[in-house]
């Protein structure tokens, strides 16, 4: 395992210490392990909280700030946060108008957020949880854990954050999260595995000429292993899977070509070129785009494509000013 880390047990803490030192606009509580906007809670503003396992940086801590999250609670690497921690983030974000929890659909996240919401109700904080499950690589069925939450999380945090910033009500902010989730589909591909620091070895083994199709963001293997293919074919697999599940033709979309952490920006732009061409060829208008490492899996090499079918309101919310370490425009 080759990692730029100190003590393997302190990786999350060290990340938080670095974020605290680098971003005066954030308040980082090293005991509670939460990252909070320095100006939170804002009276009357709906609070927006998200969290999950660490290792997906900049998600979620890097998306705390004006126009996005009020607080984030990072768990251990690839392990959902614990209820007390989620509660602390919820309390810190609560300005009296209720708090929306953006929860990725993993058993651990769902259960821990559920327990935290119960604890929050005990403290008279109204919590509306919304579960994100946009990953088309997973079969959705009542007999399974259902689809995973991936790229739609960022879209939801950004748009709902803009609405909360603009004074949206608890129900309206939650509704935007739900709407974004319903209108987004994602599909990921890994060229290499990644190594959880505490585990010390890669989460799976891939041959030199192999790749995993349909990976999630937790270093878990995907749904199928195939020979390594050229970027345009990989993009075709991803967009076809998305399009099969949610027909895109005729839509205006926001596209994210998201690196899994170990793929250089150069390659992501190449993949984006292929995606833009594919979408153009299928009658889809790309109205907005995002290319870079936003929702990652440690140092995994690979790409995840996310497509959101925009509405005029969602476009407006996407364009609204945002000022976080990981996403910033308009101020």
């Amino acid at each position: 395992m080759k990692k730029l880390i100190g003590d393997v047990d302190d990786v999350v803490l060290d990340t938080l210490r670095g974020m605290a030192a680098a971003h005066p606009s954030l308040r980082v509580d090293l005991d509670q392990r939460i990252i909070v906007r320095a100006d939170a809670p804002r009276t009357g503003k709906v609070g927006l909280v998200s969290g999950g396992g660490s290792g997906h940086e900049p998600l979620h801590g890097g998306f705390v700030g004006y126009g996005m999250l009020d607080a984030a609670c990072p768990g251990e690497v690839f392990t959902s946060p614990v209820p007390d921690q989620i509660l602390a983030a919820t309390t810190a974000a609560s300005g009296g108008a209720g708090v929306v929890h953006i929860v990725k659909n993993y058993t651990g996240d769902v259960l821990n957020f559920q327990m935290a919401a119960e604890l929050a109700e005990d403290e008279d904080v109204e919590v509306v949880p919304v579960v994100i499950d946009d990953d088309v690589a997973v079969q959705d069925s009542t007999y399974t854990a259902g689809r995973r939450g991936t790229g739609a999380t960022l879209f939801a945090e950004k748009t709902a954050g803009a609405l909360a910033e603009a004074g949206g009500t608890l129900q309206d902010v939650a509704a935007v999260v739900r709407e974004v989730n319903e209108r987004t589909r994602s599909f990921g591909v890994a060229l290499t595995a990644c190594t959880v620091p505490a585990a010390g070895r890669p989460t799976f083994e891939l041959g030199d000429d192999e790749m995993e199709l349909g990976i999630g963001i937790h270093g878990e293997p995907g749904r199928e292993r195939t020979k390594l293919r050229p970027a345009p074919e990989i993009v075709d697999v991803a967009l076809s899977a998305i399009n099969d599940d949610m027909p895109l033709s005729g839509s205006e979309v926001l596209v994210m070509v998201n690196g899994m952490g170990g793929t250089p920006l150069m390659e992501l732009y190449g993949a984006y070129a292929a995606a833009a061409e594919w979408l153009g060829g299928h009658g889809v208008t790309v109205a907005r785009s995002l290319v870079g490492n936003y929702v990652t899996s440690l140092e995994m090499a690979g790409v995840m494509v996310s497509v959101l079918r925009l509405t005029p309101q969602l476009t407006e919310l996407w364009d609204a000013p945002v000022e976080t370490p990981g996403l910033r425009w308009g101020r």
Binding site: E76, T79, P81, V82, T107, G108, L111, N112, M115
Partner: peptide, 12 residues
């Protein structure tokens, strides 16, 4: 356990 394990196993 619930407040320290995290993941699926913690709450369960």
């Amino acid at each position: 356990l619930a407040s320290s394990v995290g993941g699926a196993a913690g709450p369960l």
